[in-house]
């Protein structure tokens, strides 16, 4: 996180019109595609060196699918992900391996993402087996000890098994594994949501420290809007497979213009009982529609209080609305709404 909130450095990851559909099939022998879950449906963003891009959204909005696409665990249905100019969807073999070395992932669940039969030393050292050029064989134990130290674990625990650690410590092990190959980008999918409040802060602080130390770029995916604000330079708000609003943390949290962002922010309970009366709450009705059958036009229109006929007909694009651009100021940032309009919902302190 940079204090000035400005993005720094050149774009190392360029995502353009990224689409991932999961086919829905029927029949056992003669599988027939009857539809598709449109998990990610046309997303573009840049990630610059050393910055943190936060991605927020409710369950089912496609944020975890983006994470899996970025580390190439899934192949995109359409669109491109370019790492330093190379389209990673087109790479294979050695070239793909080299890119993967530089984009690592930290998973949500520290209980299932570590192999219970492997020692911590083997878990953190495994990336070196796959990319032997990073550390010569004789040097690996030393590198693992160093990594343990970097993430705040005792290097003496190198021979212990995951079950001997607490949730927060396990998440540190996962982070050490992600760091082993000295990547440029770390994709963190809900890295702190399984942790207790008092431990969560330790891990968030660790991630921030490591970012400064190793000049890492983070894609930080979470449903907790407070944590995302804390750690991010820029924030993308997702709804049903699309980004509905994107901007710096202040633009999104203090000057939201998309109705969904406004509703989402107003729903977050603020730990301040005095704010109970001051706050205006936008209560959405209903649930998120199925991504297999999203509404036409604007996907949020079925829950939106501003929806008009145009919203069903024309899909709003993620761009700076012309009327906001003319007015200038922090409200002039990309927002995919025909009727985007600033409305402060977070009671400022």
């Amino acid at each position: 996180m940079r204090a000035d909130g400005e993005a720094i450095g050149e774009a190392i990851l360029e995502v353009r019109d990224l689409v991932k559909h999961f086919p829905l099939t029927r029949g056992v022998l003669f599988k027939k595609q009857v539809g598709a879950v449109r998990a990610v449906d046309g997303i573009s963003f840049d990630l610059r060196r050393g910055e943190t891009l936060g991605i927020v959204g409710e369950s089912g909005c496609g944020k975890s699918t983006i994470a899996r696409l970025l580390v190439n665990l899934e192949r995109p249905t359409a669109g491109r992900i370019r790492y330093r100019g190379q389209d990673i969807g087109k790479l294979s073999g050695g070239a793909l391996k080299a890119v993967r070395r530089n984009i690592q992932m930290v998973f949500q669940d520290p209980y299932t993402s570590l192999n219970p039969r492997m020692t911590v030393g083997d878990i953190i050292g495994e990336p070196f087996d796959i990319h032997p050029e990073v550390a010569p064989k004789g040097d690996r134990r030393r590198r693992v000890r160093e990594l343990l130290d970097v993430v705040g674990l005792s290097p003496e625990h190198i021979n212990r098994y995951p079950h001997q650690f607490s949730g927060g410590q396990r998440q540190r092990i996962g982070i050490a594994r992600g760091l082993a190959l000295r990547p440029e980008v770390i994709v963190a999918d809900e890295p702190v949501s399984a942790l207790d409040v008092s431990v969560q802060a330790q891990v968030v602080n660790l991630l921030e420290r490591l970012q400064e130390e190793f000049d890492l770029a983070y894609v930080f995916i979470a449903h907790d809007l407070s944590v995302v604000r804390h750690i991010s330079d820029r924030v993308a708000v997702m709804y049903l497979g699309r980004v509905v609003e994107m901007g710096t943390d202040a633009e999104i949290y203090e000057h939201p213009t998309h109705p969904y962002t406004q509703a989402l922010l107003s729903a977050v309970p603020v730990p301040d009982p005095a704010a109970r009366q001051r706050r205006e709450r936008i209560l959405l009705t209903g649930d998120v529609p199925s991504p297999a059958n999203p509404p036409s036009g604007c996907r949020f229109r079925t829950r939106c209080w501003k929806a008009r006929p145009k919203c069903a007909e024309v899909q709003p694009l993620l761009e700076v609305p012309s009327w906001l651009e003319e007015a200038g100021g922090p409200a002039a940032h990309p927002s995919a709404c025909h009727f985007a309009e600033e409305r402060g919902v977070v009671a400022g302190a």
Partner: peptide
């Protein structure tokens, strides 16, 4: 606990984590 949670309504500096478990 109150010091260790990030706030939606303000951008803080480093969080004051409780040490240990």
């Amino acid at each position: 606990l109150l010091d260790s949670i990030p706030r939606l309504d303000r951008k803080g500096q480093r969080l004051h984590a409780i040490k240990g478990l």
